[in-house]
Amino acid sequence: MPPKYHVLSVLVENRAGVLARVSALFARRGYNIYSLAVAPTDDERFSRITVVVDVEQAPLEQVVKQLNKLIHVIKISELDPRDSVERELMLVTVKAPAEVRGQIIELIGVFDGRIIDVGHDELALSLDEHPERLDDLEDLLRPFGIIDLQRTGRVALPKLERS
């Protein structure tokens, strides 16, 4: 994860071409989208795009204003990681010959993840957690030999107020 990443939560109309319009505003400025998650909200006329970008604050403000000008964008909020709850799902297939299989099973247990598929010499694991916890598990699994790994990109919502 880059150091100065920002998480934007963009509520959009759920229709063709919206994602292209949103991503084009980052692309034309040469900003890389670090991760992206899109799905309909409870009201299926709308979708929520959670986008993580590596941009300085000042250009980000301008991008947010430009995003707001898109006809199909309803609302944009920047989610400060300190004030939001974040989750991400990771699926990973890892080499698991008999001599280390126990260690891997123990590890996924520690992380509260699950084994979702079992092969002769491989295990497929899943973990939905805070993105940094996924990073940790990824680091710990790497020495065993990661065969495939897929993350969904983070989704986030503002923390609830408690006063």
Binding site: A16, G17, A20, R21, A24, R28, K69, I71
Partner: peptide
């Protein structure tokens, strides 16, 4: 619509 996305206020197919 792809070509003109960046040069229109809005476009629609």
């Amino acid at each position: 619509v792809g070509i003109t996305r960046g040069v229109t206020k809005h476009n629609e197919l």
